[in-house]
Each structure stands twice: as structure tokens, then as C-alpha cells.
């Protein structure tokens, strides 16, 4: 390993992916639940919007985020008023970008899990006057565990691999927005292949192990995760 190899971008990426995954699981649960149960006409529109980051080039997302998160933007301006900090070029801004970027990877597995729920235990819980929260944790969550695991793993690994959006709104600040993909890009651009190899290798092995553990658990639990 090159002695000067900077591992800070790796930790930063892990931090970003963790924060994003936790927040997404919280926000995506009610959204996925609504999508799984509603018959509202707007459902297809919302589903299409959720799926957009799957197909849009990250530059499109990055371009809009640069404007929206900027000091005159719809989110950036009020944020600046409230906190006296900007959203572009900050970790907070990257979290917001990642929430959008990884949204479909979390919502879709959850929605699938909720749609496949056995309704009878849930109806029984309602008849027994269990609170919505209680029925969620005692009835829904155990059944949807598989979906949650898939959502968490996909959300986490996808955020870990985020590049184009960060390149456009990050500003390459060490410890703040220089995530591992940007650091690898920089190393390649400056022909520092040794450092690029180390970081890329670490990311490759780490991601592989995460997926391997999930698949292995999957087999033992006799449930399909991905």
C-alpha cells in the first residue's frame, strides 16, 4: 500500500452511504406503503417519479441539484437563511443528492414486499385493536424483512458507488465531499495508478463481501433477498 494513501474518502463514502440508507428506509417506508396500497389515480405518476433516478443520467440530476441546492435555489436559499451554510459543496448537500439518487433502490423492494404481504394477520391485528405502529412492527416488519434487507443493501451499495452527481455538486473537498469514487477518478487522472488500484480494490472487495454475506444469509434464511 502506498504510504501516502489517503483513506479518508473511503470513510466519507461509508458515512454518506450509512446516513443515506437510514434516512431512506425511514422516508421510503410510508411512501412504499402508500404505493403498495393506494388506488389513487396519481399512483402511476408517483411511481414513475420514484423510478426516474434509475434511468436519468446522473448529470441531469446533478445539473438540477446544482441549481436547486445553490444559494439562490428553491432548497439552497432557505437553507442558507436558516443555517448560514450552503448545500452545494457540503456533506449535507451530498446526503440530499444521494437520497434522490438511491430512492428507487429502496422504495421498489419495499413496495414489492408490502404488495406481497399476507393480509390476514394484519386484519387480525386490526380486529384485536393493535395500534398501527404495533401492527407494523409485529406483523408487517417480520414479513417484509426480506424487502428491508434488499432495500438497505441496494441503497447502501448504490450510494457507495455514486459518482456523476457528486462530481457536479461536490467541489472535491477533502473530508467533506471527496468521496471514494471521486478520489479514484483523481488518482486515475493524475496517473497515480497505485493509489487508484488500492482504493478501487478495496471498494470491489468490500462490495463483493457485502453482497456475498447477503446471498449467504439468504440461503440460510431460505428467503430470496435480491
Amino acid at each position: 500500500m502506498p504510504t501516502e494513501l489517503d483513506l479518508a474518502p473511503l470513510w466519507l463514502s461509508l458515512q454518506l452511504a450509512s446516513v443515506t440508507t437510514v434516512l431512506l428506509l425511514l422516508f421510503a417506508t410510508p411512501l412504499a406503503w402508500w404505493l403498495a396500497n393506494t388506488r389513487a389515480r396519481g399512483r402511476a405518476v408517483i411511481e414513475a417519479m420514484v423510478a426516474l433516478p434509475l434511468v436519468l443520467p446522473p448529470t441531469v440530476l446533478g445539473f438540477y441539484l446544482l441549481l436547486v441546492l445553490g444559494p439562490h435555489g428553491a432548497l439552497g436559499a432557505p437553507w442558507l437563511q436558516l443555517t448560514d451554510t450552503t448545500l452545494t459543496f457540503t456533506f449535507t448537500g451530498l446526503v440530499i443528492a444521494s437520497l434522490l439518487y438511491s430512492l428507487p433502490f429502496v422504495v421498489q423492494p419495499l413496495q414489492n414486499a408490502f404488495e406481497a404481504l399476507d393480509r390476514k394477520p394484519l386484519e387480525a391485528a386490526w380486529c384485536l385493536r393493535a395500534s398501527p405502529l404495533d401492527s407494523f412492527f409485529s406483523v408487517v416488519l417480520p414479513q417484509a424483512m426480506r424487502g428491508y434487507l434488499t432495500a438497505a443493501v441496494l441503497g447502501f451499495t448504490h450510494t457507495l458507488g455514486e459518482f456523476g452527481v457528486v462530481l457536479m455538486v461536490g467541489g472535491n473537498i477533502p473530508g467533506e465531499t471527496r468521496v471514494i469514487s471521486i478520489a479514484i477518478y483523481d488518482h486515475v487522472e493524475t496517473l497515480d495508478y497505485a493509489s487508484a488500484h488500492w482504493l478501487a480494490g478495496i471498494l470491489l472487495v468490500f462490495t463483493f463481501i457485502v453482497l456475498l454475506v447477503v446471498y449467504a444469509l439468504d440461503r440460510h434464511a431460505r428467503v430470496r433477498v435480491i
Partner: peptide
């Protein structure tokens, strides 16, 4: 903050970021 090249620097300033 660092842009990838001076083109991105122009764009960072022009977009008021």
C-alpha cells in the same frame, strides 16, 4: 472548492454556487 477544470469553475461562479 475544486472544479474538474476551469470550465466547471466558470459554471460554479455563473450558477452563484
Amino acid at each position: 472548492v475544486q472544479g474538474d477544470d476551469v470550465g466547471q469553475v466558470f459554471q460554479f461562479v455563473a450558477s452563484a454556487n
